[in-house]
Amino acid sequence: MPFGQIEAIAHNGLRLAYERQTGARPTFVWCGGFKSDMTGTKAQALAEWARTRGQGFVRFDYSGHGQSDGAFTEGTIGAWTDDTLAILDQVTEGPLVLVGSSMGGWISLLAGRARPKRVAGLLLIAPAADFTERLMWASFPQEVKREIEETGRWERPSAYDPEPYVITRQLIEDGRRHLLMDAPIPCTGPVRILQGGLDPDVPAAHAEALAKLIQSPDLRFDLILDGDHRLSRPEDIDRLISVANELADKLAP
Results as ranks from 00 to 15, higher is better:
residue 209 A to D: 12
residue 67 Q to C: 05
residue 1 M to T: 13
residue 197 G to Q: 00
residue 132 T to M: 03
residue 13 G to P: 05
residue 40 G to C: 08
residue 130 D to H: 02
residue 156 R to S: 14
residue 238 D to V: 06
residue 159 A to V: 13
residue 227 G to K: 04
residue 196 G to I: 06
residue 92 T to K: 02
residue 109 L to I: 11
residue 134 R to A: 13
residue 6 I to R: 13
residue 120 A to T: 09
residue 65 H to E: 12
residue 33 G to E: 10
residue 252 A to N: 14
residue 45 A to H: 05
residue 68 S to I: 07
residue 4 G to Q: 05
residue 66 G to Q: 10
residue 167 I to W: 08
residue 215 Q to M: 07
residue 38 M to H: 04
residue 168 T to N: 12
residue 226 D to N: 11
residue 39 T to S: 14
residue 43 A to P: 02
residue 113 R to N: 10
residue 67 Q to W: 12
residue 57 F to Q: 06
residue 128 A to F: 02
residue 2 P to I: 11
residue 88 L to Y: 05
residue 66 G to S: 09
residue 123 L to V: 07
residue 13 G to R: 00
residue 217 P to D: 08
residue 169 R to V: 11
residue 253 P to N: 12
residue 72 F to G: 06
residue 148 I to K: 01
residue 246 E to A: 15
residue 33 G to C: 05
residue 138 A to Y: 03
residue 138 A to V: 07
residue 91 V to D: 09
residue 107 I to P: 05
residue 172 I to F: 12
residue 49 W to Y: 15
residue 62 Y to E: 05
residue 78 G to R: 02
residue 209 A to W: 00
residue 54 G to V: 11
residue 205 A to M: 03
residue 139 S to E: 12
residue 234 P to E: 10
residue 212 K to D: 14
residue 163 E to T: 14
residue 196 G to L: 05
residue 204 A to F: 00
residue 87 I to G: 02
residue 80 W to M: 09
residue 208 E to C: 07
residue 228 D to M: 00
residue 138 A to T: 13
residue 249 D to A: 06
residue 249 D to R: 00
residue 10 A to H: 07
residue 7 E to K: 07
residue 89 D to Y: 09
residue 226 D to F: 01
residue 101 S to A: 11
residue 206 H to A: 08
residue 242 S to P: 00
residue 47 A to C: 07
residue 143 E to G: 01
residue 64 G to Y: 10
residue 106 W to T: 13
residue 20 R to T: 10
residue 175 G to I: 05
residue 43 A to G: 09
residue 163 E to F: 09
residue 36 S to F: 01
residue 201 D to W: 03
residue 50 A to G: 12
residue 24 A to H: 12
residue 238 D to L: 08
residue 53 R to P: 14
residue 50 A to S: 13
residue 90 Q to F: 07
residue 207 A to S: 14
residue 15 R to I: 06
residue 101 S to L: 01
residue 38 M to C: 09
residue 136 M to V: 14
residue 172 I to D: 00
residue 30 W to F: 09
residue 213 L to K: 14
residue 94 G to D: 03
residue 197 G to D: 00
residue 31 C to R: 01
residue 36 S to E: 11
residue 222 D to Y: 02
residue 191 V to F: 11
residue 27 T to C: 14
residue 93 E to W: 01
residue 23 G to V: 06
residue 109 L to T: 14
residue 188 T to C: 11
residue 235 E to H: 01
residue 141 P to Q: 05
residue 56 G to K: 09
residue 250 K to H: 12
residue 233 R to T: 15
residue 4 G to P: 13
residue 165 Y to I: 15
residue 31 C to N: 12
residue 94 G to P: 06
residue 23 G to R: 06
residue 171 L to Q: 13
residue 121 G to P: 10
residue 3 F to R: 15
residue 194 L to Y: 02
residue 113 R to G: 08
residue 39 T to M: 04
residue 26 P to A: 13
residue 147 E to G: 03
residue 172 I to P: 02
residue 113 R to Y: 00
residue 230 R to D: 02
residue 47 A to R: 12
residue 38 M to T: 05
residue 89 D to N: 11
residue 245 N to Y: 02
residue 111 A to D: 11
residue 14 L to D: 07
residue 219 L to V: 09
residue 204 A to D: 13
residue 46 L to M: 15
residue 104 G to M: 01
residue 2 P to D: 10
residue 219 L to G: 06
residue 20 R to Y: 03
residue 5 Q to C: 03
residue 137 W to F: 07
